[in-house]
């Protein structure tokens, strides 16, 4: 199968759910195509968190400028669950950070699109190297700490963790410090698909209740359906308000999602955590994503 990418890019501005749906479709298509070409990688998680990532990057919630990736005033996003990078790469490309065409190089030797994000490759828009679970959230805490108390600016920091990832104890050390330092400029998003490599999160090692845990660490917690654009928009608006109002608490958005969302045969199947579609599956998936 011949794979081509169009070079459509999207603006970052308030939008209607219908528009988000169109962009998300494009992102999911990119994920399938790039993973099919890579012949390895993670399908399920990236597809499941696509709706949240779409609203975050294309709904006017984050300030960034793809023409000036290192702009000092930008808000920052740290992908704590590094293995979800196919969705981040697509989003960054569609935001205009680098040519969409480059998605073809995912996981190849010398590519800026490493199997797990590596800033040693100088990919514009990428803020930190991640892939060892449970570290990105601490990096985000450090950034938020710097913004709020040292540089005293009005920048925000977002981070995304998986629900399997939060089994790492270091996640809760990060949460404790975020609460302790009253980091209202920090927004932690948890991709709650109840899937990880060995099976269901509640069976491998239950992390529930997730919301009460973050609450106990002094977070403002928002539970949402991670595929409902209105709810995602409201949650990110709420975080913005928390930030504007200086509530003195970090925000956690617990997004209930389905792994593999948008591709019927991948949906809610943990077996799709770490594999790419083969040709037949890619064709089928791309047919569904229209």
């Amino acid at each position: 199968m011949q794979i081509e990418f169009d070079d459509l890019v999207f603006e970052n501005k308030p939008r209607e759910p219908k528009e988000f749906a169109e962009i998300a479709l494009k992102i999911r298509t990119d994920i399938i195509k790039s993973l099919f070409l890579a012949k390895s990688g993670h399908s399920g998680g990236p597809l499941g968190i696509t709706d949240v990532m779409t609203v975050l990057y294309f709904g006017g919630f984050m300030r960034y400028n793809p023409k000036e990736p290192n702009w000092k005033g930008r808000d920052r996003f740290v992908l704590s669950a590094g293995h979800l990078c196919p969705v981040l790469y697509s989003v960054l490309a569609r935001a205009g950070y680098f040519p969409v065409e480059e998605l073809k190089t995912l996981r190849k030797y010398g590519s800026r699109l490493q199997g797990h994000p590596g800033i040693d490759m100088n990919l514009p828009g990428l803020e930190a190297s991640t892939g060892s679970l449970g570290q990105g959230i601490s990096i985000a805490v450090g950034m938020a700490l710097s913004d709020k108390y040292l540089d005293k600016n009005d920048r925000k920091v977002f981070t995304l963790t998986g629900d399997g990832e939060i089994q790492e104890g270091s996640v809760w050390e990060a949460a404790m410090s975020a609460g302790n330092f009253k980091l209202d400029n920090l927004c932690v998003i948890v991709d709650n698909n109840d899937c990880q490599i060995d099976g269901r999160v509640h069976e491998v090692m239950s992390v529930y209740p997730i919301d009460k845990k973050f609450e106990a660490f002094n977070f403002e917690v928002i539970n949402i359906d991670g595929h409902n654009y209105t709810e995602i928009v409201e949650a990110l608006n709420k975080f913005n308000q928390n930030f504007q109002n200086n509530i003195g608490k970090p925000t956690a958005i617990i997004a209930k999602t389905f792994m593999g969302k948008g591709v019927s045969f991948m949906e809610d199947k943990y077996e799709w955590h770490g594999i790419p579609p083969n040709e037949e599956q890619a064709i089928k998936a791309l047919q569904e994503l229209v």
Binding site: H116, G131, S132
Partner: peptide, 8 residues
């Protein structure tokens, strides 16, 4: 370990 890259 291959395509997973440096972190792994």
């Amino acid at each position: 370990v291959g395509p997973d890259g440096a972190t792994h």
